[in-house]
Design a protein around this nucleic acid. Structure first.
Lengths: 230, 230
DNA sequence: GTCGCTCTGTTAATGATCGTAACTATGCAT
DNA sequence: ATGCATAGTTACGATCATTAACAGAGCGAC
């Protein structure tokens, strides 16, 4: 009931919001979050700047909404990559590769999603951003969980307890897997973050190869082998 | 020759740039790089804004100089932490802990150093930033190198060649150690980066504990044990 | 059909930002 | 003492985000 009521104005509104976000997204992808400007957006839409405030409370909120979209897009890419693979281990590998590929293709978007504080909109938009980011992480955790229990030798009791408490309700993921996924996600992110910040360029190493070795180490651990950490 | 000529004006100049950078640094540490404003700096010094351009080509260059200082300060903290320890393994542990401690104490400074593109000053200031960042990394590589050769089981030939080429001149660090240090540095950074971005807060895990387990895994690998990766 | 409300858009104005231009005064060397 | 590089000023222009005040269109109620 009261569901098939797009009431024309509503339709126009959604359309306008989409157009604003599209313009903002292209600005973001071209020049980074710093360069996205309300004036420029309005100009590109042949609109006056204050009109944008009918759709967004301000620049920070627009950026926060953009961050949500970025997380969702990334999650979609990861899910697609996982869907293309048959074996559970190759799924993990595909997701990890898709993660870096997406980040390199959209560096500014990745930066907005992971390394931006959103200024004042930090906790204001948290309720929107957190679920989007979690959908991203759940893809990774899901494929890791399917790939089997890793060796959970040195999982401290306290951490085990924490991991068991949280996430235990919704998903049936054992704590060891959760820890494994979390750690490896952070490792992949660390490499990508340094690469995007040009901090590995100075060392002269092939970042793709470095990433490759990390993935291999992760896969080794997933295969229950006592693989070398480095 | 011509070395003991501080020539008063020169002294005043150094003093002024120090004051400017100090004001900028406090602004940075309080509100992040976004909030550092030339106007605010000049105001706090009872100076007119355009006067700052006698000392810095613009805002981006000032931020780049600040990034250099941040890297140097971080390097100093790491060196100090290393100096306080006796055993080579405990030195690695101390440096890793100091790394996170420093980042948590100065989150915005860390962010400027590692997750900022410096806009247009990217390659313009690279020659200043890169050495400063490397001094930071060399502390880490140094203590790792002293702690002994890690197991270098799965080091691909191509990566080994790259690592041997670079860095081979100055330092006598074997490629396996270099790779080990680089990877573990990125892993620590990944965890810190996610923590600073509040991405781990949503999961409810104790970030300190998570960091602790990563350090333990690294130390295990350094002790030549075939430790579990996760 | 008309009244009235809400939504959407406008223009105008405020205050902040960085940066440049033109000008003045000071320090310092010749 | 003269002259030049340095360091500072005020004035200005171009952005930017945001708010206020106002005007028209959509749309339901009577």
């Amino acid at each position: 009931m009261a569901e098939q009521e797009p009431t024309r104005r509503e339709r126009y509104r959604r359309q306008t919001v989409a157009e604003i976000k599209a313009a903002a997204m292209t600005q973001l992808c071209e020049g980074g979050d710093e360069t996205v400007s309300l004036n420029a957006i309005a100009r590109s839409m042949a609109m006056s700047t204050p009109a944008l405030y009918r759709y967004f409370a301000g620049r920070d909120e627009l950026l926060a909404d953009l961050a949500v979209d970025v997380h969702l897009a990334l999650a979609g890419a990861l899910e697609a990559a996982a869907g293309r693979e048959a074996s559970s281990v190759s799924r993990v590998e595909a997701v990890a590769n898709a993660y870096r590929d997406w980040a390199l293709a959209q560096p500014h978007a990745y930066h907005l999603a992971y390394e931006t504080t959103y200024g004042a909109a930090r906790e204001h938009a948290a309720d929107r951003i957190v679920p989007a980011a979690q959908r991203c992480m759940n893809v990774f955790l899901g494929v890791v969980a399917e790939a089997g229990e890793p060796v959970a030798a040195a999982l401290p009791a306290a951490l085990d307890k924490q991991l068991r408490r949280r996430h235990g309700d919704q998903h049936r993921i054992p704590a060891a897997v959760l820890h494994f996924g979390l750690v490896w996600w952070s490792r992949l992110h660390g490499l990508i973050s340094l690469e995007l910040g040009q901090h590995l360029a100075a060392t002269g190493v092939d970042t793709a190869l470095l990433y490759r070795t990390e993935i291999d180490a992760m896969l080794d651990a997933l295969r229950h082998r006592c693989g070398a950490t480095a």
